[in-house]
Design a protein around this nucleic acid. Structure first.
Lengths: 114, 114
DNA sequence: GTGTTAAATAACACAACCGTTAAATACTCT
DNA sequence: AGAGTATTTAACGGTTGTGTTATTTAACAC
């Protein structure tokens, strides 16, 4: 354990169920039952997904009677955005090369089959 | 297995060794031996990290004699950037609230202990 | 207190992850 | 062909992740 924050965040985001939970929470806080409802898995499983998200700092849990509303905390995602930004020029140049290649195809086609 | 691309990418990025490998490759292609050198782990271990990165589409391996130079492919990171971008306004508002809080503290202090 | 609802924890099973060392593969050079 | 170099694959072991069902905890309502 005791992984760095970025590893914790990426690891938490690696599961599609957890990403779907975050997406749901982007619309507002929700109870564990509400978060469980859309999925085919049991509430304990969701509860443990929430624990992973909580340990990554991506959600916060408060308490309201017997409910424990879950709220999104997007702050760790800022670090992800910063990390990935360093690579933008790399994928941009990949895309540029692809664009150039496609343009070359376009240019060639009207001149027809020679 | 057979996870979606985004899960594959996040999962590959969840390991600090693999992120360090990507960072090294951002400066140019490298052999497996070169990539192994900075780490305290064996070459087979690095080789398997490379396999994970390759399956996520983050690196490509060519062949040159007995070397298999590894190259960065940042394209899958574009999807990560797009995904995380949806949450920017959330962490921005978190930061704004934090700023407001700090400003409040600043304003209060000079007025002193009352 | 008793019953009900919401959620977490316990105990278990199974698969995946990550490292190791030893052996196999692929290529070069003489 | 035989030796040397680079890398992968095989076999193993320990830890972690993800699901299940059964049980426990916490708070409400009567």
């Amino acid at each position: 354990m005791q992984a760095d924050q970025l590893s914790l965040t990426f690891s938490a985001l690696a599961d599609p169920t957890r990403r779907a939970i975050l997406q749901r929470l982007a619309h507002g806080e929700a109870s564990v039952s509400e978060l469980t409802e859309p999925f085919d898995i049991s509430m304990p499983a969701i509860s443990r997904h929430l624990k992973v998200l909580e340990q990554a700092g991506l959600v916060a849990r408060t308490r309201n009677a017997q409910w424990r509303p879950v709220q999104l905390n997007a702050v760790p995602l800022a670090e992800v955005a910063g990390w990935v930004e360093h690579y933008r020029r790399h994928w941009q140049s990949e895309f540029d090369r692809m664009d150039a290649y496609l343009a070359e195809l376009q240019k060639g086609d009207p001149d027809a089959k020679q």
